[in-house]
Amino acid sequence: MVSHVNDFGSTKKSAGLPEYAKPIEDHLTLFIQIIGICTAIVVSGVGVDVAYHGHVMGFYVTGASVVIFFLEVTWAITLFIQICVKNDESLCWNCWSSVLMITRGWRRSLFYLPVSCILAWKPYRLWLSFVAAGLLAILALAHIASSALDRRSFCQMNGGVDQIGESLLHTRPDCYDHFEEVLVTEVLDDGSGAQGRYVDSDGEI
């Protein structure tokens, strides 16, 4: 359960609210960031080695490693842009948001899986090619799993908010009725008490 900390340091559990802590997603994101950078380094090593032995494919693999490294450090680039650009409506931020929308989540697997198949199909007698192909396949599957978990968490959060809204709407008339009863009772009691005091003080109606 999610716990809220007040000013005095004590904790209490929230009741009836959706859980916003996502430990699985956080661990998966950290795993993707680490394995993404490692994969880019391994693929670049394969590309340089293949190009060194006179194969044209090595240059393409090296270029693919640059793209992989760029895609896997977009979170760092986003943080840098947020620090430098304070205005969310600026042209730079809008362009970068469009890039993130195109390259985020499962869409990266559309690039990783073909490169993984090429490295496994043409290893050029280099055992590191199979390692790079396996890392790319794992990275692609991790991005697909992360997108699926994010979508499920988003649906659950919207469902929880709708349920809370419906419960508040259903309980609101009862609260209003109870409030009206209290006001009417207090007004009647005050009126009768004031009238009784008036009769006692003057001795007549």
Rank of each mutant, 00 (worst) to 15 (best):
Y112F: 09
H143R: 14
L168F: 01
W121C: 08
T78A: 06
S116F: 02
E181M: 04
Q163E: 14
R151N: 11
L110I: 10
I102S: 07
Q156C: 10
I144F: 05
W121Y: 15
W75R: 14
C175W: 02
S146V: 05
L135F: 03
M101I: 09
G159N: 13
A132M: 00
V161K: 15
Q156L: 12
K122L: 12
A148D: 07
L149S: 00
D150R: 12
L126C: 06
L110F: 10
W93M: 14
T74R: 15
A140S: 09
Q163S: 11
H178Q: 08
R125S: 13
W106N: 13
D177E: 14
P114R: 06
E72C: 09
I102H: 10
R107P: 01
C175M: 09
S109Q: 09
R107D: 03
D177A: 06
L113E: 12
N158F: 04
L188V: 05
S153E: 07
P173N: 00
I118E: 04
E181K: 08
V161G: 06
I77T: 11
R172K: 07
E89K: 15
T74S: 07
R172Y: 00
L149H: 00
V161D: 11
V161E: 13
L128V: 08
V131G: 10
S153F: 04
I164Y: 05
T78D: 09
L136S: 00
G165E: 11
